[in-house]
Design a protein around this nucleic acid. Structure first.
Lengths: 334, 334
DNA sequence: ATTAAAATGGTCACACTTAAAGAGCTTGCA
DNA sequence: TGCAAGCTCTTTAAGTGTGACCATTTTAAT
């Protein structure tokens, strides 16, 4: 690794001359500038980023802490984050909390000691259920945090949220009003998360407004919930529509309904949560509430960069990224 | 951010005393040690990692460069990497090449200037087709690299590969010998990648050994290949087995075959590539060649950590992580 | 008082940036 | 002609936080 010092020695000038020449400072004569840049190119000199970081006390690195990468929603968000950060010459350190409070805390502890300029986080399930927010509060005093999707209302920081309530409310009303459905089931495996509660609330409101009966199948953290779904569908043959509020149980319900000989969407409509390409893994193409993960990632990153690059402390914002109802082939075209 | 200097001033001792006290050096008296550690805890002192990194010229950070995170295989590998690195107190900086050579080069350029101790990479599609390896060669002189899955034979570094040839060979023979299949189709959308070639070779060998006719459907980079698959299946009604060599086209083929009224696995067997939980998104549960992404990630990280922690230059290793045939419900139980 | 051991302090280097000082010129004016 | 003033280019010095190494001071025992 060639350093300024070595270049200086080879050129018989001082270190600061080399430094200034390379940053094209007006203090340095043209001829020396040329000598310096030539040698620097020849030896492929690149300034050591760690030293720059120490000097400037800025790392140009963002810590990204997510519960999982196997959930395509989070993978998509991370992709969006990476894209935006990259175009501003920021890097990201990714930590996976695995839904564990302790792992999340450790990540924040480790990275908050100078390693990153800011954080983007979707809080772990355990953090949300136990409501332990000390690590966020400690860090947020000195380092900006942006939360997305899984958000804690009592942590003072910027947030990017999804219109969870409204999207499920709208979808349920779509079933009721446009498709004339009467027996609408909601399937959930994230009912303990705030976003899960909002979604269930949206469903409940729409159902009650229409004077129908709510039917909610809560799967909890069941590892293989497919038998539960199958049994429920078998015992409730009068169902004519299903809303699933996460990305996987919708496809499971679709497959189980087909297995029970249902025609989709004639006998029963299904709308799940997902992303733009969700439909590719099911047949027929599943209709989804598209959460716009990429956009959420972009927005989160932009929000954080704004905070990082403004001298004065900016006010915390909360931005809602509206999801989009992608009607494919498991709901009626009306 | 509280520093050694500040602690020293508050305690009326020198910086080096504080430093030694906190590292529990025997040079320091018990009483001062206690005073120092107490104040350090009170003020929540954590050594600045950037300064430590500069001092030690080690970052304890690994650069991970992958083509995509939306591909669950890569997501799983990254998860495995993160788990192993985390248990050794390493962090990872993740860059997504998006299959682009230029983006990959930029990531290597940026991170190789002191930001990371080593790299783990699956080379981008474009890098592989254009065979541009300068950025790897430059970096590998000073920084260890581990390649996984998408590997370049002429770059001198450690590698973690999958038994691509053998796994598809075995699968094809399984169809031929155990299921007595005669018309076996291979579906590919990664035929330009080395791993794709190996897989196709394995299939071809098995088919030719059995005196059967090879049938290969190459989809290239077609964004929505489902019509192509559908048409092929419709025009080749005598197919009785399908091997798909990537994680998504297998499920597509399964869905299209069902659409054409095939009984699975009675009429036609399907085995795709995937991961442990692939089966959850299809009905019936798809049989897959499970690439063991998590294990590949763990192995890559371990290999890199070995190189980083051995003083002497270690010989480059190539480790094969054998994939596992997970027979679920789209192939016969025989 | 001597001396060794114990405890603490000082210096430097890691690689870089930048403010301030200095060296070597030319210019201009008495 | 002499010399201060001004200009350009370059160097010196200081600082970022840490930790290794060496030097110095303090303590206690003889």
């Amino acid at each position: 690794m060639v350093t300024l010092k070595e270049l200086a020695k080879l050129l018989n000038v001082s270190v600061s001359t080399v430094s200034k020449a390379l940053s094209d400072s007006s203090e340095i004569g043209e001829s020396t500038k040329r000598r310096v840049t030539e040698l620097a190119n020849e030896l492929n000199y690149k300034p050591n980023r760690i030293a720059q970081q120490l000097k400037s006390s800025k790392t140009k690195v963002v810590g990204v802490v997510v519960p999982s990468l196997m959930n395509p929603f989070f993978a998509e968000v991370v992709h969006g984050i990476e894209t935006t950060l990259g175009s501003h010459n920021y890097d990201m350190t990714v930590c996976i909390s695995n839904e564990s409070l302790e792992k999340e805390q450790r990540s924040f502890d480790l990275l908050s000691t100078g390693s990153v300029d800011g954080f983007i986080v979707a809080v772990a399930r355990e953090t949300q259920t136990k409501h332990n927010i000390k690590h966020f509060e400690n860090v947020s005093r000195t380092t900006p945090i942006v939360m997305f999707d899984r958000v804690l209302n009592d942590v003072a920081c910027s947030k990017v949220i999804v219109n969870d309530y409204q999207s499920v409310y709208d979808t349920t009303r779509y079933f009721i009003e446009r498709e004339n459905r009467k027996n609408i089931l909601l399937i959930s495996n994230i009912e303990e998360l705030s976003v899960g509660k909002y979604r269930i609330d949206g469903y409940t409101k729409a159902i009650e407004e229409a004077g129908l009966k709510t039917k909610v199948l809560k799967l909890g953290r069941e590892l293989n919930p497919r038998p539960l779904i199958f049994d429920y569908l078998k015992e409730n043959k009068d169902l004519d529509a299903i809303v699933s509020i996460d990305h996987i149980t919708g496809i499971m319900a679709l497959n189980k309904a087909k297995l029970l000989g249902k025609n989709i969407p004639e006998d029963i409509s299904i709308i799940g949560f997902g992303y733009a390409d969700s439909k590719y893994v099911s047949s027929p193409n599943i209709s989804v509430i598209n959460q716009k993960g990429f956009e959420i990632g972009e927005t989160s990153a932009k929000l954080l960069l704004e905070e990082l690059n403004s001298k004065s402390r900016v006010k915390h914002k909360t931005i809602m990224v509206k999801s989009q109802l992608n009607l494919n082939d498991t709901s009626k075209k009306v």
